[in-house]
């Protein structure tokens, strides 16, 4: 199954990955080959077979709702790319003048 350049660009955008032209071209080739290989699954009759998300299926896992210590703010922010010591800083999302 071949993927168009547009398809690849759309997937890159959905994936939030900025890719170079060279990377896009290589993705197009490799993803196409891999998707072709997946066609083999069409041979398998899966009528009335339930999807299996986990091999060891546990259900309704609960624990006591106890108060526990949480990570101190300083430690939680220690790896932040940008912080003012109180918050994680991100670029402006809403502009007042627009």
């Amino acid at each position: 199954m071949s993927l168009s350049q547009e398809d690849v660009k759309k997937v890159a955008s959905l994936s939030r990955l900025a890719l170079s032209e060279k990377e896009l071209a290589q993705m197009q080739e490799h993803l196409g080959q891999i998707l072709d290989y997946f066609e083999i699954l069409q041979e398998v009759d899966t009528e009335n077979v339930e999807p299996m998300a986990h091999a060891i299926e546990l259900h309704n896992v609960f624990r006591e709702d106890e108060i526990r210590e949480s990570l101190p703010r300083e430690e939680a922010l220690a790896n932040a790319p940008k912080t003012d010591g109180k918050y994680f800083l991100v670029p402006e999302i809403l502009r007042q003048d627009k």
Partner: peptide
């Protein structure tokens, strides 16, 4: 489809 094959 892959998850169904996984069960098989």
């Amino acid at each position: 489809k892959a998850l169904r094959v996984r069960r098989l």
